[in-house]
Simulated scan of single mutants.
Amino acid sequence: MLTYYFITNKENIQLARDEAIALITAYNPNAEIISKERLLIVNSNKDLKQVWDRAAMLRYAGRSYDKVDLKTFACKVINLTDNKLDQRYYIDKFVKEMNLKNAKVSLNNPDVVFGIIIADKEYRCILLSKNNKKLLKLHKHPAELVNKLAILMINLSGVIEDEILLDPCCGTGTIIMYASYMGINSIGCDISMKMCNYTRDNLEVNNLSASIINCDSTRLPIKRTDVMVSNLPYGRASSTYKRDSKELIKQIIDECNMARRIVIMCKEGDEPEYIKSYTIYVHSNLRRKIVICR
Protein backbone atom coordinates (compact mmCIF):
# COMPACT_ATOMS: atom_id res chain seq x y z
CA MET A 1 0.00 0.00 0.00
CA LEU A 2 1.38 3.39 -1.03
CA THR A 3 0.36 6.82 0.19
CA TYR A 4 0.22 9.58 -2.42
CA TYR A 5 0.11 13.31 -1.76
CA PHE A 6 -1.52 15.52 -4.40
CA ILE A 7 -1.38 19.30 -3.97
CA THR A 8 -3.66 21.50 -6.06
CA ASN A 9 -3.07 24.89 -7.59
CA LYS A 10 -4.48 27.91 -5.76
CA GLU A 11 -6.60 29.28 -8.60
CA ASN A 12 -9.68 27.03 -8.33
CA ILE A 13 -9.26 24.59 -5.47
CA GLN A 14 -12.63 22.83 -5.80
CA LEU A 15 -12.21 22.26 -9.53
CA ALA A 16 -8.63 21.06 -9.03
CA ARG A 17 -9.77 18.63 -6.32
CA ASP A 18 -12.58 17.31 -8.50
CA GLU A 19 -10.18 16.75 -11.40
CA ALA A 20 -7.75 14.83 -9.18
CA ILE A 21 -10.51 12.75 -7.56
CA ALA A 22 -11.98 11.88 -10.98
CA LEU A 23 -8.58 10.56 -12.07
CA ILE A 24 -7.84 8.77 -8.80
CA THR A 25 -11.16 6.92 -8.80
CA ALA A 26 -10.80 6.10 -12.50
CA TYR A 27 -7.46 4.36 -11.91
CA ASN A 28 -8.38 2.88 -8.52
CA PRO A 29 -12.05 2.99 -7.45
CA ASN A 30 -11.07 1.52 -4.06
CA ALA A 31 -8.49 4.16 -3.17
CA GLU A 32 -8.96 5.90 0.18
CA ILE A 33 -9.01 9.69 -0.31
CA ILE A 34 -8.58 12.19 2.53
CA SER A 35 -9.18 15.80 1.48
CA LYS A 36 -7.52 18.67 3.36
CA GLU A 37 -8.14 21.87 1.36
CA ARG A 38 -5.33 21.91 -1.25
CA LEU A 39 -3.91 18.56 -0.09
CA LEU A 40 -5.31 15.17 -1.09
CA ILE A 41 -3.86 12.20 0.78
CA VAL A 42 -4.55 8.94 -1.04
CA ASN A 43 -3.91 5.39 0.15
CA SER A 44 -3.79 3.08 -2.85
CA ASN A 45 -2.73 -0.46 -3.65
CA LYS A 46 -2.32 0.59 -7.30
CA ASP A 47 0.15 2.92 -8.99
CA LEU A 48 -1.29 6.44 -9.34
CA LYS A 49 1.59 8.10 -11.20
CA GLN A 50 -0.78 8.59 -14.19
CA VAL A 51 -2.85 10.99 -12.07
CA TRP A 52 0.12 13.33 -11.76
CA ASP A 53 1.20 12.93 -15.39
CA ARG A 54 -2.27 13.82 -16.67
CA ALA A 55 -3.54 16.42 -14.20
CA ALA A 56 -3.89 20.00 -15.40
CA MET A 57 -4.46 21.65 -12.02
CA LEU A 58 -2.11 19.89 -9.61
CA ARG A 59 0.96 21.79 -8.42
CA TYR A 60 2.90 18.93 -6.81
CA ALA A 61 2.60 15.19 -6.29
CA GLY A 62 4.54 12.81 -4.08
CA ARG A 63 4.46 9.31 -2.69
CA SER A 64 5.48 7.62 0.52
CA TYR A 65 8.80 5.82 0.89
CA ASP A 66 10.56 3.34 3.17
CA LYS A 67 14.33 3.21 2.83
CA VAL A 68 15.93 5.25 0.07
CA ASP A 69 19.35 4.42 -1.39
CA LEU A 70 20.77 7.62 -2.84
CA LYS A 71 23.92 9.61 -3.40
CA THR A 72 22.37 13.01 -4.04
CA PHE A 73 19.13 14.64 -2.93
CA ALA A 74 17.24 17.91 -2.66
CA CYS A 75 14.45 19.06 -0.34
CA LYS A 76 11.45 21.27 -1.00
CA VAL A 77 9.28 22.71 1.74
CA ILE A 78 5.66 23.11 0.58
CA ASN A 79 3.82 25.46 2.90
CA LEU A 80 0.03 25.05 2.76
CA THR A 81 -0.60 27.20 5.82
CA ASP A 82 -1.04 30.96 6.11
CA ASN A 83 2.02 31.20 8.35
CA LYS A 84 5.50 32.26 7.32
CA LEU A 85 7.90 29.37 7.93
CA ASP A 86 11.61 29.01 8.51
CA GLN A 87 12.26 26.54 5.70
CA ARG A 88 15.86 25.93 6.78
CA TYR A 89 14.59 24.63 10.14
CA TYR A 90 12.40 21.97 8.48
CA ILE A 91 15.12 20.94 6.02
CA ASP A 92 17.82 20.62 8.71
CA LYS A 93 15.48 18.60 10.93
CA PHE A 94 14.56 16.32 8.03
CA VAL A 95 18.20 15.68 7.02
CA LYS A 96 19.15 14.89 10.61
CA GLU A 97 16.23 12.50 11.19
CA MET A 98 16.77 10.75 7.84
CA ASN A 99 20.51 10.38 8.52
CA LEU A 100 21.42 11.75 5.10
CA LYS A 101 24.87 12.98 6.11
CA ASN A 102 26.61 10.66 3.62
CA ALA A 103 24.49 11.94 0.71
CA LYS A 104 25.18 15.23 -1.01
CA VAL A 105 22.76 18.01 -1.85
CA SER A 106 22.29 18.52 -5.60
CA LEU A 107 19.90 21.17 -6.86
CA ASN A 108 20.49 20.41 -10.55
CA ASN A 109 20.06 16.66 -10.92
CA PRO A 110 19.37 14.94 -7.57
CA ASP A 111 18.58 11.24 -7.30
CA VAL A 112 15.55 12.14 -5.18
CA VAL A 113 13.64 15.31 -4.30
CA PHE A 114 12.01 15.03 -0.89
CA GLY A 115 8.85 16.99 -0.24
CA ILE A 116 8.19 18.37 3.23
CA ILE A 117 4.52 19.34 3.26
CA ILE A 118 3.37 21.65 6.04
CA ALA A 119 -0.42 21.55 6.43
CA ASP A 120 -2.44 20.54 9.51
CA LYS A 121 0.74 18.63 10.37
CA GLU A 122 3.99 17.73 8.65
CA TYR A 123 3.97 15.16 5.84
CA ARG A 124 7.01 13.77 4.04
CA CYS A 125 7.21 12.23 0.60
CA ILE A 126 9.30 11.77 -2.52
CA LEU A 127 8.17 14.31 -5.10
CA LEU A 128 7.27 12.81 -8.47
CA SER A 129 8.59 14.06 -11.80
CA LYS A 130 6.01 14.78 -14.49
CA ASN A 131 5.87 13.13 -17.92
CA ASN A 132 3.92 15.26 -20.38
CA LYS A 133 4.51 17.55 -23.30
CA LYS A 134 2.91 20.42 -25.17
CA LEU A 135 1.58 19.24 -28.52
CA LEU A 136 2.17 21.10 -31.78
CA LYS A 137 -0.60 22.69 -33.83
CA LEU A 138 -0.40 23.52 -37.52
CA HIS A 139 -3.91 25.00 -37.54
CA LYS A 140 -5.64 27.10 -34.90
CA HIS A 141 -9.00 28.84 -34.45
CA PRO A 142 -9.99 31.88 -32.34
CA ALA A 143 -12.59 29.86 -30.41
CA GLU A 144 -10.46 26.78 -29.71
CA LEU A 145 -9.78 25.56 -26.19
CA VAL A 146 -6.47 26.32 -24.56
CA ASN A 147 -4.52 23.13 -23.88
CA LYS A 148 -4.95 23.25 -20.10
CA LEU A 149 -8.76 23.39 -20.29
CA ALA A 150 -8.90 20.59 -22.86
CA ILE A 151 -6.81 18.36 -20.58
CA LEU A 152 -8.91 19.36 -17.56
CA MET A 153 -12.19 18.44 -19.28
CA ILE A 154 -10.82 15.07 -20.43
CA ASN A 155 -9.74 14.32 -16.87
CA LEU A 156 -13.08 15.35 -15.35
CA SER A 157 -14.72 12.70 -17.54
CA GLY A 158 -12.71 9.96 -15.78
CA VAL A 159 -11.79 8.29 -19.08
CA ILE A 160 -8.65 6.13 -19.06
CA GLU A 161 -6.44 4.37 -21.59
CA ASP A 162 -8.14 2.16 -24.22
CA GLU A 163 -11.60 3.59 -23.48
CA ILE A 164 -13.45 5.68 -26.08
CA LEU A 165 -13.83 9.47 -26.02
CA LEU A 166 -16.10 11.30 -28.45
CA ASP A 167 -15.88 15.01 -29.28
CA PRO A 168 -18.89 15.75 -31.53
CA CYS A 169 -17.71 19.32 -32.29
CA CYS A 170 -13.97 18.78 -32.49
CA GLY A 171 -12.95 21.97 -34.34
CA THR A 172 -9.16 22.00 -34.71
CA GLY A 173 -8.91 18.95 -32.47
CA THR A 174 -7.40 20.09 -29.16
CA ILE A 175 -9.44 17.63 -27.07
CA ILE A 176 -8.90 14.82 -29.59
CA MET A 177 -5.14 15.44 -29.72
CA TYR A 178 -4.61 15.31 -25.97
CA ALA A 179 -6.96 12.37 -25.47
CA SER A 180 -5.06 10.43 -28.14
CA TYR A 181 -1.76 11.41 -26.50
CA MET A 182 -3.09 9.95 -23.22
CA GLY A 183 -3.73 6.60 -24.92
CA ILE A 184 -7.50 7.07 -25.20
CA ASN A 185 -9.32 5.88 -28.32
CA SER A 186 -10.64 9.14 -29.74
CA ILE A 187 -13.40 10.01 -32.19
CA GLY A 188 -13.77 13.56 -33.45
CA CYS A 189 -16.73 14.83 -35.46
CA ASP A 190 -17.37 18.21 -37.04
CA ILE A 191 -19.91 19.58 -39.50
CA SER A 192 -17.11 21.49 -41.23
CA MET A 193 -14.86 19.48 -43.53
CA LYS A 194 -12.26 22.23 -43.13
CA MET A 195 -12.15 21.65 -39.35
CA CYS A 196 -11.93 17.89 -39.86
CA ASN A 197 -8.93 18.36 -42.12
CA TYR A 198 -7.36 20.74 -39.61
CA THR A 199 -7.75 18.11 -36.88
CA ARG A 200 -6.21 15.41 -39.08
CA ASP A 201 -3.22 17.66 -39.82
CA ASN A 202 -2.78 18.53 -36.14
CA LEU A 203 -2.84 14.85 -35.21
CA GLU A 204 -0.38 13.91 -37.94
CA VAL A 205 2.22 16.51 -36.94
CA ASN A 206 2.28 14.93 -33.46
CA ASN A 207 2.33 11.32 -34.76
CA LEU A 208 -1.08 10.71 -33.20
CA SER A 209 -4.12 8.96 -34.62
CA ALA A 210 -7.88 9.20 -34.13
CA SER A 211 -11.06 8.64 -36.11
CA ILE A 212 -12.24 11.95 -37.62
CA ILE A 213 -15.72 12.09 -39.19
CA ASN A 214 -17.34 14.92 -41.14
CA CYS A 215 -20.96 14.93 -39.94
CA ASP A 216 -23.67 16.90 -38.15
CA SER A 217 -23.32 16.48 -34.38
CA THR A 218 -27.10 16.08 -34.03
CA ARG A 219 -27.02 13.02 -36.32
CA LEU A 220 -23.94 11.09 -35.29
CA PRO A 221 -22.97 7.81 -36.99
CA ILE A 222 -21.55 6.62 -33.65
CA LYS A 223 -22.96 3.58 -31.87
CA ARG A 224 -20.72 3.53 -28.79
CA THR A 225 -18.56 5.79 -26.67
CA ASP A 226 -17.54 5.74 -23.02
CA VAL A 227 -17.47 9.51 -22.55
CA MET A 228 -18.32 12.66 -24.49
CA VAL A 229 -16.12 15.73 -24.00
CA SER A 230 -16.59 18.85 -26.10
CA ASN A 231 -16.30 22.62 -26.33
CA LEU A 232 -19.72 23.19 -27.87
CA PRO A 233 -20.42 26.02 -30.34
CA TYR A 234 -21.99 29.22 -29.08
CA GLY A 235 -22.66 31.21 -32.23
CA ARG A 236 -19.98 33.87 -32.62
CA ALA A 237 -16.42 32.68 -33.17
CA SER A 238 -17.68 29.08 -33.30
CA SER A 239 -20.62 28.77 -35.65
CA THR A 240 -23.91 27.09 -34.77
CA TYR A 241 -24.93 27.28 -38.45
CA LYS A 242 -27.82 29.63 -37.55
CA ARG A 243 -29.25 27.24 -34.95
CA ASP A 244 -30.13 28.31 -31.40
CA SER A 245 -27.09 27.42 -29.29
CA LYS A 246 -29.05 26.26 -26.23
CA GLU A 247 -31.32 23.99 -28.27
CA LEU A 248 -28.34 22.71 -30.25
CA ILE A 249 -26.54 21.72 -27.03
CA LYS A 250 -29.61 19.81 -25.86
CA GLN A 251 -29.82 17.95 -29.19
CA ILE A 252 -26.11 17.04 -29.11
CA ILE A 253 -26.36 15.72 -25.54
CA ASP A 254 -29.43 13.66 -26.45
CA GLU A 255 -27.50 12.25 -29.41
CA CYS A 256 -24.68 11.19 -27.05
CA ASN A 257 -26.89 9.43 -24.51
CA MET A 258 -24.77 6.26 -24.79
CA ALA A 259 -21.92 8.00 -22.92
CA ARG A 260 -21.57 7.27 -19.19
CA ARG A 261 -20.13 10.76 -18.59
CA ILE A 262 -20.63 14.00 -20.53
CA VAL A 263 -18.40 17.03 -19.93
CA ILE A 264 -18.95 20.16 -22.01
CA MET A 265 -17.94 23.80 -22.17
CA CYS A 266 -20.60 26.32 -23.12
CA LYS A 267 -21.47 29.97 -22.61
CA GLU A 268 -23.27 31.11 -19.47
CA GLY A 269 -27.02 30.72 -19.86
CA ASP A 270 -26.74 27.76 -22.24
CA GLU A 271 -26.10 25.15 -19.53
CA PRO A 272 -28.21 21.99 -19.79
CA GLU A 273 -29.19 19.97 -16.70
CA TYR A 274 -26.04 19.10 -14.84
CA ILE A 275 -24.45 17.37 -11.85
CA LYS A 276 -21.76 20.02 -11.40
CA SER A 277 -20.72 23.22 -13.13
CA TYR A 278 -17.72 25.53 -12.85
CA THR A 279 -17.20 29.09 -14.04
CA ILE A 280 -13.99 29.52 -16.02
CA TYR A 281 -12.43 32.83 -16.95
CA VAL A 282 -11.07 32.36 -20.46
CA HIS A 283 -9.72 35.90 -20.06
CA SER A 284 -10.70 38.86 -17.88
CA ASN A 285 -13.88 39.71 -19.83
CA LEU A 286 -14.91 36.27 -21.08
CA ARG A 287 -16.47 33.60 -18.89
CA ARG A 288 -17.48 30.09 -19.85
CA LYS A 289 -19.06 27.17 -18.01
CA ILE A 290 -17.58 23.70 -17.69
CA VAL A 291 -20.56 21.44 -17.10
CA ILE A 292 -20.63 17.79 -16.03
CA CYS A 293 -23.99 16.60 -17.33
CA ARG A 294 -23.88 13.07 -15.95
Rank of each mutant, 00 (worst) to 15 (best):
A22L: 10
S35P: 11
I213V: 01
E97N: 12
M195T: 05
K267V: 10
L40D: 04
P221N: 07
I275D: 15
R287F: 05
K93Y: 07
Y278H: 08
Y65V: 06
I252V: 14
A259R: 08
I126N: 07
W52G: 01
N132K: 02
W52P: 02
N132L: 05
P110C: 02
R88Y: 05
V146L: 06
G188Q: 08
S129F: 03
T225D: 05
A74C: 02
R261H: 12
Q251A: 14
L136Q: 15
D167W: 06
Q14R: 13
E32L: 15
V113R: 14
S44C: 08
G115A: 07
A259L: 12
K104N: 11
N185E: 15
G62M: 04
K101N: 12
E97D: 11
V263N: 08
A22G: 13
N285C: 00
S245N: 15
K46I: 13
R287D: 09
E144P: 01
I292Q: 09
Y27G: 09
A56E: 07
I275Y: 11
N206R: 06
M228W: 07
K121P: 01
I154N: 08
M153E: 08
M193V: 09
R54I: 01
I191D: 08
L128A: 04
S217H: 08
A210D: 02
N9D: 08
T72M: 02
E144I: 04
L203Y: 10
K133M: 00
K194G: 10
R219A: 14
N202V: 09
E19N: 04
T72W: 09
A210G: 00
E161F: 00
K134D: 06
D120T: 00
A119F: 04
I176S: 02
I292T: 05
S211D: 15
Q14I: 15
V229S: 04
T72A: 10
Y60V: 00
